[in-house]
Every structure is written in structure tokens, then in C-alpha cells.
């Protein structure tokens, strides 16, 4: 059955229209969960606000578990969905750079767009920075092309790599996330007492 656009149950154009609505859902959740505030996002890394961790990991485990059930019911063919390709060295470097960018800028691309929508100038500047960053990347691309394409592992999943069934991964992630939720809740309680000025 699914993914229905791949299996030709809806037209390509309708898929694009639906994309707008799906994006709206995503943007809505981002803004409504408080991701439009750079302080909320940065707060994660100083232990005074774990909203990001909560929203993020809840989303991950709900999707992981949901995907397995959907595939079990025969509603969704997991072999037809897009799997992120892995290029080890460049992805590791990229993630480190992204992490630094996130803590300095206080946003990530999705949240900055949601924040621009409600009138945050800092988010607008972050988004402009994104454009510049990608432009710079395109300019230096010929120099780093080899590095960019090195260490290609293909569109591998955790199961391809380890041979452990996806059910175990989903279960493992869920348990870790649930423990993390309870632990962060208690950390937050302690830290919030110290930081008088910013409460959530």
C-alpha cells in the first residue's frame, strides 16, 4: 500500500500539494513546542531547558515504533522509503560543524524558518547565514569533493550494518529515551533552582 505516492496512488502534483500541508504540520509543531525560541534550544546544552531533547526523542521513538507497526500491518513497504546515505568522514565533520553552528546561532534550519514566521530577527539572520554557508560550500566544493564523497557506505540502516533486528533498535531507543526523560526532568528541577532569571 504505502508509500502511496511511490506506488502511484496519488499523482505527483497532488504529492506536492500535500507536501505543503505536511510542512505546515511540521512547522506548526515546531513553533507550538517552543522551537521558535533560540533560548529554548540553546537551553538544552546548559541544562536549564530540555524541551528540545523531549520533543526530538519523543518524535524519534514514536516514528520508529510506528514505522515497524505500519510495515507489520502491510500498510507501508519499508524497502521503498528513502534511507539517508552514509558518507562517514564528511558526515562526522558536517555534524561537528552543525553542532557548533547550532550552539552559536541558537537555531537549526527548520526552527529558524518557523521563528522567522513569527517575526524573530535573529532567526532571519540565522537563515541568511544558512544561505551564505551553503553558497560558501558550493564555492569550495571542487576542493573538497573527494572528501565529500569518501567513505561511502550506501543507504545503510542500522540493521544492515549490525544485523540486529529493527525491533531491538526501536526498543533500545525507546528505553533510552524514556530513561533520559525522567533523568532530565530531575536535572531540570535542580538547575532551575540555581538559575533565577530564566524559568520555564
Amino acid at each position: 500500500m504505502g508509500p502511496i505516492a511511490i506506488n502511484g496512488l496519488i499523482s505527483a502534483n497532488l504529492n506536492l500539494v500535500i507536501a505543503v500541508f505536511l510542512g505546515m504540520g511540521f512547522g506548526f509543531v515546531l513553533e507550538a513546542s517552543g522551537f521558535s525560541s533560540a533560548r529554548n534550544i540553546a537551553g538544552t546544552f546548559y541544562g536549564y531547558n530540555f524541551v528540545v531533547v523531549r520533543v526530538f526523542f519523543t518524535a524519534v521513538i514514536v516514528t520508529m515504533v510506528g514505522l515497524l507497526y505500519l510495515s507489520y500491518f502491510g500498510w507501508l513497504n519499508l524497502s521503498q522509503i528513502f534511507i539517508l546515505p552514509t558518507y562517514l568522514p564528511s558526515m562526522i565533520t558536517g555534524s561537528i560543524i552543525m553542532g557548533v553552528g547550532m550552539i552559536i546561532g541558537g537555531f537549526c534550519p527548520g526552527t529558524s524558518f518557523a521563528a522567522v514566521a513569527i517575526g524573530k530577527i535573529d532567526a532571519l539572520f540565522f537563515a541568511i547565514g544558512l544561505f551564505i554557508g551553503i553558497f560558501l560550500f558550493a564555492e569550495v566544493y571542487p576542493l573538497i569533493e573527494k572528501f565529500y564523497l569518501s567513505g561511502y557506505l550506501g543507504h545503510v540502516t542500522l540493521t544492515d550494518l549490525t544485523g540486529i533486528k529493527p525491533g531491538w533498535w526501536a526498543f533500545g531507543f525507546t528505553v533510552i529515551a524514556l530513561i533520559a526523560f525522567w533523568v532530565t526532568a530531575s536535572i531540570e528541577k535542580k538547575v532551575r533552582k540555581k538559575i533565577k532569571e530564566y524559568k520555564f
Binding site: 521513538i61 514514536v62 520508529m64 515504533v65 515497524l68 507497526y69 510495515s71 507489520y72 513497504n77 519499508l78 524497502s79 521503498q80 540502516t157 540493521t159 533486528k165 529493527p166 525491533g167 531491538w168 526501536a170 526498543f171 531507543f173 525507546t174 528505553v175 524514556l178
Partner: peptide
């Protein structure tokens, strides 16, 4: 959430090549 995740261990996984 825990029960849901636990359930995934028991369902027959179909995440294989086509």
C-alpha cells in the same frame, strides 16, 4: 510507550530488501 516499543520486538519484521 514502553509497551508499544516492547511490542515491536515480537512483530515479524519485514524490513528487508524488496
Amino acid at each position: 510507550m514502553f509497551v508499544l516499543a516492547l511490542g515491536t520486538l515480537f512483530i515479524h519484521e519485514r524490513v528487508v530488501s524488496p
